[in-house]
Design a protein around this nucleic acid. Structure first.
Lengths: 343, 343
DNA sequence: TTGTATGCGTTATCAA
DNA sequence: TTGATAACGCATACAA
């Protein structure tokens, strides 16, 4: 076990004890009221109302429509809130007005830099729009991801962002919630994608220009509906059009950094011995993988050998900026479904 | 703008339109009731009760204490739930029983692989413990992170996991919530850390053994209370003990991959010209940075030059596995505060 | 500008 | 084993 795995392990376990702690000290002692942690009475609008002599309604208005109060009364309530140390309770507010401000996110993993950066972008929108995100990392199993969705629905989310593959868009659309898919099969929902085909065409052309004798594209298998399929097709089309010797390696690419790294290492060995003496141009499906492949090459040869040309995709920041690893800048495609949920 | 930034931009914007969509079609048409999206009436326990002839209480019991119902009646209710397509509402449940099953997370960023992997570990605990995580990426400003915490508290979270630096542990402890800090100042709360000092000792010793003429440690400035300070101290102590020429570069290390990359590039130039002809051993504060530095070196020299020895830290999977970048395996330290919130 | 009464959907209490 | 009723904390329609 590496130190990192060990630390992860302890983090996992510490959250486990956090959870036990919560269960024992928070729930079991009959501190029932929401937020009423170890007996500190929750201050509610009722308390503020009693304290100030106003009604609950007026206190509520202080928050939702302050202009309807006189400045003086606003001050009185404001002071009371401070004095009694009022803590707002959005759970009660949700139940009353229906606005959870929750958006659900299902993302396959966080080890591919592409995904963690996307999640970063998603979370960042909070500062502008105030929506909170309930995030689940998918595990590629339909049944568990359906469970995640049920859980999300039970929290009355107002929309979903899906970066996971497993659930077909038709099913997602049936939930009648606003949905955005990112780089996924998107027949029945809105989506934002890069133009995978054009990107692959660029990548393949670039590799060809480096004078590689054989072009290789490594990727997972995708159905033609998935945008990522465009990468495979773009590669094949260009190779065939210009009659470039090529090989398509479609295989399981792993579910963790370690797995992917091992798989790519094996593939490198195969390619290395199969195409000895030839200049090999390898088109990896993302920049994390390009980076891994580069690491393997450096580890094996002490430096990047001349007979290898590597190219990634996403252009995510983690990608190598060294010459042999080119940047691909595919166009962005927006697909906004106008079919709003039926009434 | 790179393609990746462009895609990020569009993701950001699409979420923006998702939000507008929600606002227009969900809220403005007076679909007030929680989950009552475009007029589909929400099925509640009341409906199930009426349909089956039982009371709400019995329906509730079907979920929380099914054994108290006869098998036959369980079946009747189960059928009714199916038939009416009941959707559970955890918001109402929270208000009634106080258990949100929410844990708040504040994490500085997701571009350092260290953080995204930690978040991954945190999210993974859902399958075992069922806690949902409300995640905020910190921005290094006390005031905004305090706002995040207020928001979290208003959702009645049951605990917090903090990976951010800004808020002192004394303040966090004052919220009287179960809290876990990861690699942060932890005087008043529980935490899990690696032994930064021992790790730095290992790293420095390894670098020294490679025969480097000058050892360099690049890091941000930390106060001695922060665990990360141990890395700086460990480096200095070893260098001084064995009288190894060394330089400590403490500087702002950036808030994004691009920023960090530029900063490290500049530092490389400085080091490169300052120590020409000498073998330079560089100890970077994490593996992402080690990776970046390696990229810069390869970009500059076409390969990794012999007079550079690079070492990272965390041992996160993204680290280079090539020889010059060694792995550091620091011990893990657990700090479990037994001071439970006072009654 | 403020108050009264009711509802949101569930769980808890007490009684039957 | 089941039911009636009162919370939970806030928002809103309507009245004043």
């Amino acid at each position: 076990m590496t130190a990192f795995q060990e630390l992860s392990f302890f983090v996992y376990n510490h959250i486990k004890s956090l959870v036990f702690y919560i269960n024992i000290h928070y729930h079991k002692h009959n501190y029932i009221s929401v937020g009423n942690y170890h007996g500190q009475k929750n201050i509610t609008f009722n308390d503020i109302a009693k304290y100030t002599g106003f009604s609950k309604t007026t206190v509520s208005r202080y928050f939702n429509n302050p202009d309807s109060l006189t400045l003086k009364n606003q001050q009185i309530i404001s002071d009371a809130l401070d004095k009694l140390n009022y803590q707002e309770n959005k759970v009660a507010r949700i139940l009353a007005n229906g606005k959870t401000e929750f958006i659900g996110v299902i993302i396959p993993n966080l080890y591919l830099h592409y995904y963690s950066e996307m999640l970063n972008q998603i979370l960042k929108t909070y500062d502008t729009y105030g929506y909170k995100f309930l995030v689940f990392t998918g595990d590629d199993h339909k049944s568990t991801e359906r469970k995640y969705i049920q859980e999300l629905l039970s929290y009355k989310i107002e929309g979903m962002v899906i970066l996971s593959h497993t659930i077909p868009s038709r099913e997602l659309a049936s939930y009648n919630l606003p949905i955005v898919m990112i780089e996924r099969e998107d027949q029945f929902v809105s989506s934002v994608n890069t133009d995978n085909y054009m990107g692959a065409v660029q990548a393949t052309s670039l590799l060809a220009k480096t004078g590689a004798d054989i072009l290789i594209h490594i990727n997972a298998e995708f159905s033609p509906q998935v945008p990522s399929y465009g990468r495979i097709k773009g590669f094949s089309d260009i190779c065939e059009e210009y009659q470039i010797p090529h090989e398509l390696i479609l295989t399981d690419t792993g579910r963790s950094y370690e797995e992917s790294s091992l798989i790519l290492k094996d593939l490198l060995e195969i390619v290395d011995s199969k195409y000895q003496g030839k200049t090999k141009g390898i088109f990896l499906p993302n920049d994390t993988f390009a980076n891994i492949m580069l690491n393997h090459l450096i580890q094996k040869y002490g430096q990047l050998p001349d007979d290898y040309k590597i190219i990634g995709f996403d252009d995510s920041p983690v990608s190598m900026s060294s010459e042999p690893v080119h940047k691909i800048i595919p166009p962005i495609l927006i697909n906004r479904k106008t079919t709003e949920p039926s009434h």
